[in-house]
Amino acid sequence: MDFFSTYGFLIVSMLFQAMLGLSLYIPLMTGQLSLASPGFYALGGYIAAILSTTVFLPEGGGKWESGTFPIIYVLIETVLAGLASALLALLIGFPSLRLRGIYLALATIAFVEIVRVLSLNLEITGKAIGIFGVPQPFINKFDYVVLALPLLIASAWFVYRLERSRVGRAFTALREDELAAAAMGVNPTTNKVLAFVLGAVLAGMVGAISAHFLNTWNARQGTFDVSILVLAYVIIGGSRTFLGPILGGLLLTALPEVLRAIAGIQGLPLFLSQFLLDGRLIIYGLLIVVAPLFYPQGLITPDLFKRRAVKTKEAGA
């Protein structure tokens, strides 16, 4: 159990980040670079943090003992966070998704920044300090895996099936060539809004659980930095199959731990081990620059599986 108490936090974080990767991937299925995920993630977290500290109080008042917060409340918050994100995404989606390419990315950056400034200033979000003491349904951080893992599997399955369904095909057609897709009867706006909303719902739900997991929630949770991290998951992991962002989220979240382990090796020059400890974002940044040169579609591509499948077939024949 020692492993789980040491790495429990990391493992669950990896699952969360993989889902955030998926939440950016879904709009990207229609060819839209949306950096809005952290905005909805922040929103979901605030909903959970506010509800669990003001509405879902124990009978007779007071505070929840650690580990006693009912999971059913977490689930209710998660659903509400998903719904709220869906509504907000619809609201901003219809007007802004007429925008192509770069303009949409800019609009979503603006959205994330506006959410951040609002949460820094509003009473209900605890201003700059944020919301402390979000009650815990579990004593061990690793136990959050019972919430995070099913949600990751469900969302991965959702996207896997989506890619093979009528709607998913329309998404891909839009990514390949929006005008041609429209000329073939695919409504660009409704499909793009749908993808945007689905991604928002996932990000909002992840935020709700994360608020409990992190125990506290503040304006630093949903920032432009997070946008870039999540983007890195997709670019490095792969942008053409749902496995890409999942792998990217898992790997890049584990990377600092790996670097820490390497930094601990005896005999490294001080500056190098310092770099490995503090240089996580430098390495992320450089990976984002270099990866597209060697892996234009990310580490995992759909062709990877096809080639594999062909090889197995040949081997069998």
Partner: peptide
């Protein structure tokens, strides 16, 4: 389309 606009990766 005159300059073919298929969904190339599909």
């Amino acid at each position: 389309f005159q300059n073919i606009r298929l969904f190339g990766n599909l």
